[in-house]
Design a protein around this nucleic acid. Structure first.
Lengths: 201, 201
DNA sequence: CGGCATCCGGGAAGATACTG
DNA sequence: CAGTATCTTCCCGGATGCCG
């Protein structure tokens, strides 16, 4: 990919020329819901070496997918537009055997997976998510599941816990009351929200 | 990717564990419309080394995305289900600067791009494509653009020429009559079909 | 601590020659 | 034609250190 590219006129090959390098798509994933600093990106990518992350950020900046400023790194419009690629990977990946949800799940990747697995419901429900290192506010309505980063987890209800525990709560078989996460709000509303997420839709 | 995987519970990361290796997605692309022999796959991937292709085919077979038999290689259901990933890459890639349609376009990647860029029309039109080394039959209707490989290019009309010329005919600004491809059939129908394809949709 | 450069070992990818 | 064997190249991963 980076070596010299695929040298094809194929559109998919061109896309892979830009984000086919190892870690590249996952770096975009970490920035997909909002800007981050170097360390926060690294924290969402267990196993990446500092120099490799530096290299990826430079590559992605050079191709115009993200920009750097004093406060950190942020996707450009072109970078944000790669979200359907990540969504397609998630939808496909969930059907492939070998997936182990006990492995580390980053806060951003959990929220992106929720957006992908959401099955719309009529009532609009808002929820805050306090995932330890990151907080989000979400709105679940008939149109979809919209997430934005937030200094404080706000909404009709608030879920708290790490992303792996949150995955158990939203995708596991047990009722919300028995899930290993904190919950504040109306229990019926909470269960109604959780019921809208089905792994593998 | 293959090295040891990303070791994440993220669904996108899991997907990339399976098809994030260099060339892997493009190998799936070449098989997306039907089975092929080793040499035919290689012909659609300019620049790939024989041993690398061998390795990829083995990897993808080991993860259950394709199977080998006496006549060549064919995708499994899991492999075919990766098509939305390729489509998403195409849709994103066409919007990114630097794409050079003069570079080699494989017959399969042209047909896949047509399916992605198709804007549905009410009248059902069928067309055959004779791209030199490969032939396809397509049906363009209100539901979409369906392609299947075919020993002979059959349909209400037939286009012939290499894939790069076909890309000029379908995506270029000139009328079909002035395009560098062979055409047999009703010129009005041919132009009507070509008009349904807009690069960047 | 955030960000980045440098050095090194292992291993994948590239190129080419060779075999059935 | 369909790969296999071999050699080279160089990216990735990990450790370390520098600088603000």
């Amino acid at each position: 990919m980076a070596r010299q590219g695929y040298n094809e006129g194929c559109l998919a090959a061109h896309a892979l020329d830009l984000l086919g390098d190892r870690w590249a798509i996952l770096v975009l994933r970490e920035l997909m819901l909002g800007p981050k600093r170097f360390g926060a990106i690294k924290a969402g990518l267990p196993g990446i070496a500092s120099n490799v992350l530096t290299q990826r950020l430079q590559d992605l900046a050079a191709t115009g997918l993200l920009m750097r400023d004093e406060t950190g790194y942020a996707l450009t419009a072109a970078g944000r537009e790669a979200r359907p690629v990540i969504d397609a990977l998630c939808r496909w990946g969930v059907r492939q055997p070998g997936h182990d949800p006990r492995k580390f799940i980053s806060p951003v990747s959990l929220m992106l997976s929720l957006a992908v697995m959401y099955r719309p419901g009529d009532r609009v429900l808002t929820a805050g998510f306090d995932l330890g290192t990151e907080r989000f506010a979400a709105r679940a309505g008939p149109e979809g599941f919209a997430v934005r980063p937030c200094p404080e987890a706000l909404g009709d209800m608030v879920f708290s816990g790490d992303a792996n525990a949150m995955a158990v709560a939203f995708y596991g078989p047990q009722p919300l009351a028995a899930a290993p996460v904190g919950f504040r709000g109306d229990p019926g509303d909470g269960q109604a929200l959780v019921d809208r997420f089905v792994l593998g839709r």
